[in-house]
Amino acid sequence: MISVSDNTAADLLLKSVERAGVEARLGQTDMPSTREFFVLKNPANIELLRAYRSVGLDRAARKEVLKQADAAPLSNAMVFVQGLTIATDVEWFVSAQGLCRLMAELPETWQNPGVADPADFPSVSFKGGSEPGVLNLTNQLTSKVGKMWCVSATRNRPEPLDEQMFIAMYAGMLKLPH
């Protein structure tokens, strides 16, 4: 699930371990599931997105909007393939420090090295995420001298992103002497 960003599996896990526990662990409140993200970000559901935004930090009202989003039909995936940045405020916001802490705690992230070259590190883990306007790359690495470190880079802006350049710069950081 983690190594291939399986959204359905992530939502099943969120339901299994209960949303409140995940929210507490990430320091968030009323965190949407990935399904609810897609519903809220669908331009056809602009009124639902406005309702989500308008309730602010009112937990009961936000939970009600998320219930409506969970019950709403999913859109055609082509809405999201067009490369348009949609509602960058509807996300899971985790600091770089929080991402690095989670990387150290989740052995599942050790299945995929991302852009890191496994030949450069005795151990390497990776988790990334993206959608139009958003890209995150996070690696937990152990150097050949046994030092563990974490590198995380995130871009969250509505302007177009040269993803290949971003990834190349990140990969270059991982090649710096360590």
Rank of each mutant, 00 (worst) to 15 (best):
P118L: 01
T29R: 11
A72P: 14
M165S: 06
E18N: 12
Q68R: 13
S5N: 15
N76E: 09
L66Q: 07
A9S: 10
I2D: 11
K144R: 11
A24Y: 08
T88Q: 15
L57G: 08
A87H: 10
L57S: 13
S95P: 15
A24H: 13
S54R: 09
V79Y: 07
G172Q: 06
V65L: 05
V65R: 02
W110H: 03
Q28R: 09
H178F: 09
L66S: 02
A116I: 05
I2T: 10
L48N: 01
E131A: 08
L174G: 08
N139E: 11
T34F: 10
A71Y: 03
T29I: 02
F166Y: 08
G83N: 04
E91M: 11
L48Q: 09
K41Q: 15
Q97V: 11
R53K: 09
A72M: 09
E159A: 11
V134C: 06
E64S: 02
T142H: 08
L99R: 03
Q111N: 06
F93Y: 08
G21H: 15
L40I: 11
N76K: 00
A77S: 09
R155A: 12
L49T: 02
P107R: 03
K63H: 09
A171P: 07
P158Y: 04
P113K: 07
M165Y: 04
A96S: 11
A96P: 03
A24C: 03
D6V: 03
P132T: 06
F80V: 03
G83E: 06
M165P: 00
T109V: 14
F37L: 09
K127W: 10
F80L: 00
G21D: 12
N139Y: 08
G56W: 12
A60K: 09
V134W: 07
A77R: 05
M169R: 12
A77K: 00
P177C: 00
F80P: 10
E163P: 04
A10S: 11
L40R: 04
P32C: 02
L102Y: 12
L137N: 04
V151W: 02
S143P: 05
K41D: 13
R25F: 06
E159D: 15
D11C: 03
A119N: 12
A69S: 10
M78F: 00
T8W: 14
R157I: 14
A9Y: 09
